[in-house]
Amino acid sequence: MAVTALGDLIEIDDRTVLVLGQELDVEHDQPDVANALVHRAGDTVVLVDTGVTPAFRAALRAATDRVGPWSRALVLTTHGHPDHVGNNDLADELGVPVEHYLPALDLDQMRDPASYWARSLERIAGAAALPEPALAADRLVSLFQPMRPFGATTRTYEERPLEQIRIGSLRFTGWTFAAGAVRVLRSQGHCAGHVIVHLRDSGVVHLSDEGNGPCGAMADADQLKIQTTLGAVALLFEDGEAALLTDGHTFAVRRAEEVAPYLDGLLEQATALQEAALALTSESRRVRPSAFTTRFQESVAELGGGGANPNTMFTAMMAVNQLRELGLRPESGGVDAPWSRPALQNPAPDPPRRAAAARGSQPASTLRGAR
């Protein structure tokens, strides 16, 4: 793939542009910036995510000029992570009637991203060599500045009536805009509030971060929902209901013939990674997150399953989630405490307890007679 730079535009058609972001590089104080879609549906310009940084804000403005003319605006937030929401107040500067919607389940993390990331990092304190979670979270969030996730018109999707949305033979729930030309579909895998977007007239499905890897990394991720979403989107393309796939971090537009093999590959990675994790945990009844993560990271490298923007922190998050997926639980709250599978049955009582329990279960008359 050709080398890209922050804010580069990929023209999908004369009314749809993908605005390219950049990868995370904490060591060089570089935030990751998610790709954004800019699309015109009739007289409405639609922005799907707004990234972060002033440079990306300028690129969004250039993209809105590219797809014009328009007299209304609609800003759609796919989820609340800072690389997707930093320029949301751009909605207030477009100079036309505007609406902005975001997922209600992500409001808390958007109000207080440092606490959200601290909780996520606390879960991997023993699995990765990181600073104290609160300090690491503050450091991470400080990269995403200025951060303006709310505007004067911001509302939640959930303030609108939930709709059943049928696309070909598939059924989703979510919300429609611009007379049905823009469909926001609930997915909720990458994080609690996540949505994906289908642009009917351009045939684009924007996965945002549901395509960022086959296994959940965030504390509020749901691995099953990620994989279910990937399977449903593959069917949209197989049924001819979509023609182009974009996402938050791979800096590419995939044509229909590429999509099913790509999504199948992600799902195959998911099963392969869980198989690798199962093998690692089958060797011993108890595992420590640090040792498991080191070996799991080797499996991720071999299978190429680290997601679109791989790094040590996200791999450790994936590792901890894999332990939970396999049914293991921490034995204590200590850093790097062993994980094991809980017992399937309550332990048997000791002999005196069994005898007492037996006496307690006898009828009162029997007990009196025994005396």
Rank of each mutant, 00 (worst) to 15 (best):
R148I: 01
L367V: 14
A242E: 03
L230H: 00
E132S: 05
T250L: 11
D222L: 10
R285E: 15
L236H: 02
V26S: 00
V67R: 00
G216Y: 01
A279P: 00
Q145P: 04
D336N: 11
A127D: 04
E275S: 15
V67L: 06
L47S: 00
A136F: 02
D247K: 03
R111E: 13
A348V: 14
I12S: 00
I124R: 00
I12H: 03
E23C: 09
R200D: 13
A355C: 11
L230P: 00
T78H: 01
I196F: 04
T173M: 11
G51S: 05
P103H: 05
V38A: 07
T153L: 09
G265F: 04
Q188T: 13
L267K: 08
Q109H: 09
D13H: 03
A136V: 02
Y262A: 14
F314E: 07
A232Q: 14
P310C: 06
F177I: 07
V287T: 06
A118N: 08
A192K: 03
R254V: 02
G213S: 06
N87K: 03
A355R: 13
F292C: 00
V253Y: 05
P69R: 11
R353T: 12
P289N: 09
E11Q: 14
R57V: 06
E241A: 15
L235A: 12
L9C: 13
G265T: 01
A73G: 09
R171W: 11
E99H: 14
H28W: 07
R72P: 02
L9H: 14
A234G: 10
Q345K: 15
G203N: 09
E331N: 12
G51T: 04
M1C: 12
G193W: 01
T312S: 12
G333P: 11
G42L: 05
F56G: 01
V3E: 15
D106K: 03
Q362C: 12
G86Q: 03
T246R: 00
E298P: 04
A63K: 01
D220K: 04
E257P: 09
P54V: 10
A136W: 03
F237M: 08
A152V: 12
A276W: 03
D112K: 13
A114H: 08
R295D: 10
S282L: 15
E325C: 10
G7C: 00
G307P: 05
T4A: 14
T315Q: 08
V26Q: 09
D43K: 09
A128L: 08
G369Y: 12
Q223L: 12
G189C: 11
N346Q: 14
P149S: 06
E122Q: 14
H249V: 10
T44A: 09
W175G: 01
L140V: 05
W339K: 03
V96D: 08
N212I: 04
G203M: 07
S290W: 10
D8L: 03
M1D: 13
D83T: 10
T271Y: 11
L244T: 06
S169T: 15
R288A: 13
G21F: 01
A181M: 09
L170Y: 02
R200V: 15
A242F: 02
L24N: 01
L185K: 03
E163W: 07
D49T: 11
P352S: 13
D65K: 13
G68Q: 13
D89T: 09
G360H: 14
A270V: 09
P82H: 06
